[in-house]
């Protein structure tokens, strides 16, 4: 895998630490990441259960178990990116570039990068109810930034589409400046978001919904 050097911020010290943003993961590599994340997911579930935290506040990806989907993952044609720090996968993103087209604005019908999967390691989750502050921040933002870069590299002018989990909707709308384009019945009613070429430029220059 190739990659670039980046920095992410430690939540405990506030310091920026070196990390790598790697290219070249395949969908099935998610099984390796899952193995690394599984024990922590289980710990989070136990802490939530013991603390009696209402389920609406549980991370909506808590029960994702990719190992059970291994045969399907082998068939997926995605390219992936991961953030590695302290020799651990801190976050992963899988994207697709074929057969996904913009629904938004003047670029309607033109190809875009579709973010099929984006997730951060469970030790980076912030769950105040069980005193979890998260180890590192900026991982999701960095991965999304990479999706926009990939879109530029592919000649898609920064166009990106994705389906957000309900708990993530405001991040993509307000943080990334994407436009919500309605719930998608083919994706279990997740809200579909798109970043136009103009929004991509604004996002890269200023960040947020500026």
């Amino acid at each position: 895998m190739s990659g670039i050097q980046i920095q992410i911020q430690s939540r405990s010290t506030g310091e920026f630490v070196d990390a790598s943003l790697l290219d070249g993961m395949a969908a099935q590599d998610l099984l390796l990441v899952e193995r690394e994340w599984l024990a922590e997911r289980s710990l989070v579930a136990q802490e939530l259960l013991r603390a009696g935290v209402e389920r609406a506040k549980w991370p909506q990806s808590l029960h994702w178990n990719w190992s059970k989907k291994a045969p399907q993952l082998m068939l997926l044609e995605s390219t992936g990116f991961g953030v590695v720090c302290e020799s651990l996968w801190q976050g992963v993103m899988l994207t697709k570039t074929a057969s996904y087209f913009a629904r938004l604005g003047s670029d309607k019908g033109k190809p875009l990068v579709y973010v099929d999967f984006l997730e951060i390691a469970p030790w980076n989750w912030v769950i105040p109810e069980i005193g979890r502050d998260g180890r590192y921040r900026m991982i999701g933002s960095t991965l999304f930034w990479r999706a926009v870069q990939q879109s530029e590299e592919e000649g898609f002018h920064g166009r990106v589409g994705l389906h957000a989990l309900p708990q993530s909707e405001s991040f993509y709308e307000k943080g990334c400046g994407m436009t919500p384009l309605g719930r998608d019945a083919t994706k279990q009613n997740l809200l579909y978001f798109e970043l136009s070429r103009e929004q991509a430029q604004r996002h890269l220059q200023k960040g947020g919904d500026a």
């Binding site: 909506q60 999967f117 984006l118 951060i120 957000a164 989990l165 993530s168 405001s170 943080g175």
Partner: peptide, 14 residues
Amino acid sequence: FEDSCRSISAGGMA
């Protein structure tokens, strides 16, 4: 923005 949300997960594949 990340901190203001409970998650940043994209879930099309899920």
